[in-house]
């Protein structure tokens, strides 16, 4: 089973995201800031990471920088999931090595559509 690390400082957001992502067939791990996410990845790389931007201790973008420098850090597909919704933030995230970008608020359709686009799940057939 593929694994997804859900990184967000809001417990409610983590819970909602977790439910959506588990429905897509992933097993989920949670982290409440970038540092905790880094610790998780140091032990075992997940296949996917849903990543908030603004968090205490270590932000999502700082975490992504560090992740991509780790040994296996190129493996996880990283999907930002943040209230930051301007082109500058999107460009920064993509330049830092994010694979997709979700602007909050999100729903299951959006998560599914983004996960499908980067090959984490099969595309829905029409």
């Amino acid at each position: 089973m593929k694994t997804c690390l859900v990184v967000d400082d809001s417990r409610v957001v983590r819970k909602v995201a977790r439910r959506i992502i588990e429905d897509l067939g992933f097993s989920c791990i949670e982290a409440e800031d970038g540092q905790k996410a880094y610790d998780v990845c140091s032990k075992k790389m997940p296949d996917a990471i849903l990543l908030d931007w603004n968090m205490p201790v270590m932000s999502g973008i700082e975490f992504l920088d560090k992740l991509r420098k780790m040994g296996e850090g190129g493996h996880p597909k990283v999907v930002f999931c943040t209230t930051e919704n301007d082109m500058d933030h999107i460009q920064r995230a993509m330049n830092a090595g994010a694979n997709e970008y979700i602007m909050k608020p999100f729903d299951s359709d959006i998560v599914e559509s983004k996960f499908a686009q980067i090959g984490l799940i099969e595309t829905k057939t029409g």
């Binding site: 082109m87 999107i90 460009q91 979700i102 959006i110 559509s113 983004k114 686009q117």
Partner: peptide
């Protein structure tokens, strides 16, 4: 809307073909 551009549209296409 922000909601509409996130359903089915890859972020790379949003960046390339849209203005905010």
């Amino acid at each position: 809307s922000q909601f509409e551009v996130q359903r089915g549209l890859p972020i790379q296409m949003l960046m390339r073909f849209f203005d905010q």
